[in-house]
Structure formats: C-alpha cells, structure tokens
Design a protein around this nucleic acid. Structure first.
Lengths: 242, 242
DNA sequence: TCAAAAGTGTTTGACCTACACCCATGG
DNA sequence: CCATGGGTGTAGGTCAAACACTTTTGA
C-alpha cells in the first residue's frame, strides 16, 4: 500500500512517465585524479581487465552503492581513497555523461568528479605497488589521451582540461596540487604547467599576493645545491575585504 | 549466459561492489527554465500535486525514460518542450545532485539543466493556459526562492544564479535570452538584470562590439513613442581572430 | 664569491569607467 | 523642436606584461 502510493506519486512527477516501461539506468561515479609531477599535469588511469574496452585505459570509478548511504561527492572521495589512500583532498564535480550508447552493455549515467592531489613519492608507491592486479598509470593530460581510451573518456578528459585551465585564473585550485608548505617556484610551476606557458616571476608573485593571503612558513633548507634556499609558504585564510 | 557475463563484468568494474546488494538509484532530469521579462530574471516553477512536498513549488523535471533512447540533454530539451512548446533553445547542464536524503521516498540522482528562453507573449500564454491542471508560475530568481520550495531546489537555484552571473561576462548566453532580432537597449537590459547593476551605455556597446559580431538588421519602427526608433541587431557568426 | 631565491622599480600599453558632448531620426 | 537611440572623445585610473636591477642567503 505504501509502495503503491509511492509508485503513483512517482508517476505523477513526470510528464509522460509509463510505469510499465520504467527501467532505471545504472549510475556510476568516476574520479579523475590529477596531480603535477615532473613539470606536467598527470591523470591516473586504470587498465580495464574485462570487456567492453578490455585492456583499454579508463578513468577509475564505480557504481553508486546505495547501501553506503553516501553523497556523490563522498563516493568520489571514497574511490579516490581506495586508489591512492589519500584523504582530505580537493574534489569537485566535473560533469555528468549519460548518452544512450556510451556503454555498450546497458544504460549508464556517469557522474564525474576530479581530485587535485599534491604529488608525493608515497603516492607513487601506493599506486604502483598494489597487489590487486590492477594496472595503473599516470598520463600527461596535455599530451593527448592514450589511443583507444575506453567509452567517452576522451571527451571527459577534454572537458577536465578546459575546466582546470578556466578555473586556474580565478580560483585557488593550484594550491590543492601542492603540499601545505610550498615555494614560489613550485607554485609558479603549477600555473605554468596548467596554462602551458611560461610566466614572469615578479609579476606572477605580485598577482598571487594580491589575490591570496600568502604567508611565510619556517625557512627550511631543502636541497644540496648552491644558492639561497627557497622560503616555504603557506596559504592563509582568505584575504579580508575592507 | 550473455547476461551472466555482463554481470561479472559489471562486478569487476568496481572496487567493492556486491552484486546482491546492488540497487540502482532513480535518475531524473530537471530543467530550470529561465527568461527575462519585466526587468527581472525569472524561472518557471511548478506546484507539486502529490507528496512529498505537496503544494510546494519545484523545478520541473522527470525520470529518465530509457525507452526514449535520448541523451540527458535531449531529455532536458524534451521536458522544456513539453512545458513551453519551445524548440531550438539554449540548454546547458548545471550540476548533478544525489545526496541520499534529498528525496524522502527513495534514492534519486537528479541531473539538472538550465534553459535560456527569449520571452514572448506566446510563452506566457502557452504556460498559463494549460489544461493539464498543472500550476505554473514565474519566480524572480533574484528575489529569493519561494518559501518551502521542494527538495534541495533552493540550493539548485542558488547554483544556477551563480552560474549565470559567472558566465555572462565571457560567454554569449545573454543573446539566448533575446529573440533573434533585438535592440541595444534590450541587450543591455539583459546584462543589467543578471548582474544586478546599471551599466553605462557607450562603454557597454563598445565592449560587446569587441567581443561579438553584432550586425544591424533592417530598421523597423516598433512603438508609437517619440524619438528615434531603435535599430534591430542580430548576432553574427563569431568574430574571426586574425 | 657564487648561484639561486626573492623582491623592487619602472616603462609601456591595454583596457575599463565615467562623463561630456554630438549626431540621427521620427513624431 | 523634442525625446529617444546611438555614437565619439577623452581624462583618470587600474592592471598586466616585460625587463633591468638589487638584495638575500647558504654553500
């Protein structure tokens, strides 16, 4: 009875919804894990072990598990954690893809997110030294996706790059790609890699100082090279408008 | 057999997916229909006739019908057509909402789109003079949403306003809110309404001319008022970069 | 003393904004 | 003539790019 009423309510919600034909699509949440290493913008792809697109590279993700009772963003964060063991990472919704033919098996609606993670050697280890027989690899997002990438993932990565380039200039996403403490050179490198062009250091630093609350951390020597060691910086709370 | 294999493939796609617990969420596509009339930015809401949120205002939408074999954007455009009889309208994906508790009945993932429609009196008529007992109303997006709006639709409309304001300055969405032929005053009014502030006409026109290919259409007198009649404009193909 | 990090100063040009002012056009 | 549509010109300010130069710091 309760259920029947619900069915009726559902039916009325839509314009021309036929309860007899009603089938639900599968819903997956995919996570584009981005980082910057070696002066290039990388994304983590996984090699598929089963058809369709067997042995093709694909964006990691999984079906939405209703039992976990999590939000979509939490699902994305959980998948990120499962792949990288990282937590407290910047995650943002990218777009949702649901073309009828995008998965040859069945109708799949995929909500994609992207995560910006600071590169660490631990990350490299945790991803490469897995024992679950999954093959992972970091791909350069600017060098073009691997040929034969699965599903419509080439389009997704294109949308991702556009989003990153577009948001970089007016939002603090660059800091999410760096550890808490970073140097001016590292920060500038993030901008240069995403924008794909060199920047002039003094102008860059003036601009960043005007937009964000950059504070100096403890000075700390990092490398065994000559010259002045760089200052560590941290991003403070947002600049107060006065 | 074919089906069994598919199940296995599906299972492997995910990290910790349990086929026995596997339930699919419902997927709906909602459409925020925006227009500008009477110097204000309006959105079309529908009054719900059944619980939950009976008699509350809500964004129109419907469940994704797999039998129609349409893309998500086509589904949004179809719903727009069903509500307004309009076709060839600018439609863009806004965001996807899927919190577990957003619909008290069952798990619902909603992909929201927004449509920008030029106001016409025909639109007013087609929406208001419906015979399907649905109650529609245009709400001013800047005046705050109606109290007790259904589900998480208040948040959706907030995201929508942010998107419109943000995109206005670098994309030609304003033209989608006007008929093919429009005047400088009308175009400026669209910008002023969305931005929420007055603009200086000469500067506005110089700027728009620099960004878009504005062409004059046939001069045509419109009103029975004194003064020079306004020139009709059309948006030409994008400016060639040279 | 050297090399790298970090900052200062300045010039140039683009562009935005406000405002004054002029021209065009039809009632 | 007048009211409105539409444009030109310009002065002031902001901002960004480019580049030269200085200062700081530790090996």
């Amino acid at each position: 009875m309760r259920k029947a009423k619900t069915e009726e309510e559902l039916k009325d919600d839509l314009s021309n919804y036929n309860a007899d034909q009603y089938k639900k699509p599968s819903v997956t949440v995919d996570i584009c894990i981005c980082t910057i290493v070696d002066k290039s913008l990388k994304i983590l792809l996984i090699k598929r072990k089963f058809p369709p697109f067997r042995d093709c590279w694909a964006i990691p993700g999984g079906f939405l598990d209703l039992n976990l009772n999590e939000t979509l963003e939490e699902a994305a964060a959980r998948e990120l954690r499962e792949e990288t063991s990282l937590e407290n990472i910047y995650v943002e919704q990218l777009k949702t893809y649901g073309d009828p033919e995008r998965d040859p098996r069945t109708r799949v609606v995929t909500v994609t997110y992207f995560a910006l993670v600071p590169w660490t050697d631990a990350l490299k280890t945790s991803v490469e030294a897995r024992d679950d027989a999954k093959e992972y690899r970091w791909f350069d997002l600017r060098y073009g996706v691997p040929p034969g990438i699965a599903f419509d993932h080439a389009k997704i990565l294109g949308d991702l790059l556009n989003r990153l380039v577009g948001k970089l200039s007016y939002s603090p996403i660059a800091f999410s790609l760096l550890p808490k403490k970073f140097t001016w050179t590292e920060l500038q490198s993030v901008y240069e890699v995403i924008l794909g062009r060199k920047l002039v250091a003094p102008n860059f630093r003036r601009k960043i100082k005007g937009m964000y609350n950059i504070k100096e951390s403890a000075n700390f020597q990092r490398a065994l090279k000559p010259g002045r060691p760089s200052t560590y910086l941290v991003l403070g709370k947002k600049k107060e408008a006065y």
